[in-house]
């Protein structure tokens, strides 16, 4: 697993209080991991802080799964 994927999953585990095993690439924050809309806003903020990037609102709206987050951050850090 890439370093980015590991860090993303660690943040998800911490913020949503879910078991590590549930945080698969395809897991949806809202449908599978019990997040609400405010949780997803906070998750995006945590990604910004961790990776030192800015995620615009229109991009944030498309980050629905763990893989979406990893892909977006990877593209930024490319």
């Amino acid at each position: 697993m890439s370093d980015i994927a590991e860090r993303v999953k660690k943040i998800v585990v911490e913020h949503l209080g879910v078991e590590e095993g549930k945080v698969t690439d395809t897991a949806s924050f809202i449908d599978d991991l019990g997040a609400d809309s405010l949780d997803t806003v906070e998750l995006v903020m945590a990604f910004e802080e961790e990776f030192g990037i800015e995620i615009p609102d229109d991009a944030a709206e498309k980050i629905l799964t763990v893989k979406d987050a990893i892909d977006f951050i990877s593209s930024k850090q490319g």
């Binding site: 405010l38 806003v41 906070e42 903020m45 910004e48 802080e49 800015e54």
Partner: peptide
């Protein structure tokens, strides 16, 4: 402002 938590107000 971008660092303000969405949970601040509630």
């Amino acid at each position: 402002p971008r660092r303000i938590s969405p949970f601040f107000i509630p």
